[in-house]
Amino acid sequence: MLRLAHVDSFYGRSHVLHDVSLDVPAREVTVIVGRNGTGKTTLLKSLMGLTDKLTGQIAFEGREIADQPTFRRARAGMAYVPQGREIIADFTIRENILLGGFASPGSSRAIPPLVGVLFPYLMENLDRPGGVLSGGQQQQLAIARALAANPKVMLLDEPNEGIQPSIVEEIEKVITRLNREFGLTIVLVEQNISFARAVAHRFAMMEKGRIAVSGPIDALSDDLVHRHMAI
């Protein structure tokens, strides 16, 4: 579904991603793991066209998108749930969710039923500002916003970072359901190896801006984790 070939990505003059090639098959979860500062977030940003410069090829459903601006990628069916969630604090929950809808032009500007199924709490508080929500609820809101785009692939950047443990489990369940029940293709940046193993079909281990190892999730051995992620 999503294929990167020899992608190099830059912020200003700093060269962050080096020769990254990766296949993201449809209807699967691909997890990106690695230490902090190895380029996992940059990889997702590169997919969305949010870095300053990029060379190499990115094919989405067979179409080359590496030279497309961010909003076209979003409209092609890529939804982004960034690190730190980046919801808009003084927009209502409703507005925050509908914001995602601009990626599916021509759609009736309504909240998709799936959001109600997954996040009943958000549906009960649509007119409250997004800023009053807790970290975990904001994360749910960011996922709801991505779902409003009716995406083909969802890019999730450390969805469980800085979230109270009670909600972590809920969000893990949601991610699993989105893939298993609703067939959504997911690229997930995740530090928690046990969750990564539970949810993902494939993995890519990053180190120093490159993909050190990648393959089916069964190949993500303790030895590999120890070698690339131990501090």
Binding site: T70, F71, A74, P82, E86, F91, L99, G101
Partner: peptide, 20 residues
């Protein structure tokens, strides 16, 4: 709404499909 979103977070607005 698109204008207000761009004011607050242009990158996220673009990632939501807004032609900034």
């Amino acid at each position: 709404m698109q204008v207000r979103a761009i004011i607050r977070n242009p990158h996220m607005a673009a990632a939501c499909g807004i032609d900034v």
